[in-house]
Design a protein around this nucleic acid. Structure first.
Length: 258
DNA sequence: ATGGTAGCTGGGCTA
C-alpha cells in the first residue's frame, strides 16, 4: 500500500496535476493540504472518476485538508475535523479510518516568524495536537500521521542550516514540539530508509529555489510503532515540482506491506 | 533588514 502527502497550494489550480500524479504514482491513500476550497466546491466527482473516495475539511482562500483513498479500500469511518482545546475556524486537521489504518492529515500552522503571535499560536496548536494524537494512538495503534508539518526536524532537512539558523521552520521550540509528538511513538518514516541530508519536499517559489535545490524537508509521514515493521520504503517524488505552474511542495510517499 | 513569487482577491494576507 502506497501512502502519500502533498501540499497542493490550491486544489482548484492543481487538480489537473493531482489527477496526472495519481495516474503516474498510483498511491492508495493521499493526504492533501492547502486545498483552499470550501467543501461545496471540493472536486469529489472528478476524484471519484479517478477511483478515489474522499473526505475533506475546507475553507475559502486559506488552509483546507483532504484525504483520498482508493475506492477498493472501502468507506471512511470515524472522521474528525476538530479537536479538544482548539476552537479554530482554520481547517487544518482531518482524521479518518480507512483500509485498516487510522489516518491523521495535518496542515501545521506556519508561524510566520519566531516571536510573532502566529508563532505562539503554532506552539499552542502543536501541543493541542500532541494531546489529540496521544488519544488517537491509544484507540488506533495502526496510526499514520502525515502532512505539511512546517518544521524541518533537524539540520539534515535544511539546505543551508547556517543561513536558516534558528529561524521559523527550524527553531528549537518548534523542533521540541515535533519531538514531543514523535516521542508518542511516531516515527519519521523517511528516516527509517534515508539517513543522509539534502532531501527536501518544499522549495520557495522565489530566488529560483527549486533549480538551486534550496529546500527544506517539512512534509512528513509519521508511523505508529505497530506499523513500523510494515514500512518497506519511503521517497520524495520531485517530478511534480518540475511541472509547469507547480505547487511549492512536492509529494512525499511511503510504502507499507499490509 | 528587505525582497524575491504564488494564490486568492480585487487591497492585503498568507506562505
Amino acid at each position: 500500500m502506497k501512502i502519500a502527502s502533498w501540499n497542493v497550494n490550491s486544489l482548484k489550480v492543481r487538480l489537473p496535476q493531482l489527477l496526472q500524479w495519481l495516474a503516474d504514482a498510483k498511491p492508495d491513500i493521499v493526504a492533501l493540504q492547502e486545498t483552499k476550497l470550501e467543501d461545496a466546491k471540493f472536486p469529489a466527482a472528478e476524484l471519484a472518476a479517478a477511483g478515489y473516495r474522499t473526505v475533506f475539511s475546507g475553507q475559502k482562500t486559506y488552509n483546507g485538508v483532504a484525504i483520498l483513498a482508493r475506492e477498493t479500500l472501502g468507506d471512511f469511518a470515524d472522521t474528525v475535523t476538530d479537536i479538544r482545546g482548539l476552537d479554530d475556524p482554520q481547517r487544518r486537521i482531518l482524521a479518518a479510518s480507512v483500509g485498516g489504518l487510522r489516518i491523521v492529515d495535518l496542515y501545521v500552522v506556519n508561524g510566520k516568524a519566531v516571536g510573532d503571535e502566529k508563532y505562539a499560536y503554532k506552539l499552542h496548536w502543536l501541543e493541542r495536537v500532541r494531546e489529540f494524537l496521544a488519544g488517537e494512538i491509544e484507540r488506533h495503534p495502526r496510526l499514520v500521521v502525515l502532512g505539511d508539518f512546517n518544521i524541518a526536524p533537524d539540520d539534515r532537512d535544511v539546505h543551508d542550516p547556517v543561513a536558516w539558523g534558528e529561524d521559523i521552520l527550524c527553531s528549537p521550540s518548534e523542533r521540541a514540539a515535533l519531538k514531543a509528538i514523535t516521542e508518542l511513538g511516531l516515527h519519521d518514516s523517511f528516516r527509517l530508509f534515508q539517513p543522509e541530508g539534502g532531501h527536501f519536499s518544499w522549495w520557495d517559489y522565489r530566488q529560483a529555489a527549486f533549480r538551486r535545490n534550496m529546500g527544506l524537508r517539512i512534509d512528513l509521514i509519521l508511523l505508529g510503532e505497530a506499523l513500523k515493521p510494515a514500512a518497506i520504503g519511503a521517497s520524495i517524488d520531485r517530478e511534480p515540482r518540475r511541472w509547469e505552474r507547480p505547487s511549492d511542495h512536492t509529494p512525499v510517499m511511503l510504502e507499507l506491506d499490509t
